[in-house]
């Protein structure tokens, strides 16, 4: 076997490995029903802040724990423990992506959160007159 063949095989093997690996490592978008049905499995859950519930952040107790309620795109709500200090603009957020897993008590434990705030692109209709 020529050396170039060996190289080609190694490259193809690594490429496939990288492809499968990245698909395998990738998490899944899910709604709350699915996440709560599989406690302990990590999901990305997209939704909005449930404004009818209080946001609890007691820094003097735990500076890295924020508790609030989220509503997923299907309309289901769930209590969320976010392992982060309360983001400055949580109240203003219009879209949340929580990364984490559900626990046995039916609550969502988020390790991280991406937050989209009203962006400049959504204020076009501001002028009334």
């Amino acid at each position: 076997m020529k050396r170039s063949h060996i190289i080609a095989i190694v490259i193809i093997a690594v490429s496939i490995g990288a492809l499968v690996g990245s698909l395998y490592d990738s998490s899944t978008y899910a709604d709350l029903d699915q996440a709560l049905a599989h406690p302990g499995k990590e999901y990305h859950v997209v939704g909005t802040l449930d404004r009818s519930q209080e946001i609890v952040y007691e820094p003097s107790l735990n500076a890295s724990l924020t508790t609030f309620s989220m509503r997923d795109l299907e309309g289901k709500t769930c209590k969320v423990h976010l392992n982060k200090a309360k983001p400055q603009d949580l109240e203003r957020s219009e879209r949340l992506v929580l990364i984490g897993k559900a626990n046995e008590q039916g609550e969502f434990e988020a390790r991280d959160m991406l937050m989209k705030c009203p962006s400049k692109y959504n204020e076009e209709n501001r002028v009334e007159g």
Binding site: L61, N62, A63
Partner: peptide, 18 residues
């Protein structure tokens, strides 16, 4: 050494200082 009562074991609760 605050009482971190609500903590979850999997959480790394200790990132920040008050």
């Amino acid at each position: 050494n605050m009482d971190l009562r609500f903590l979850n074991e999997g959480f790394d609760n200790s990132e920040d200082i008050l």
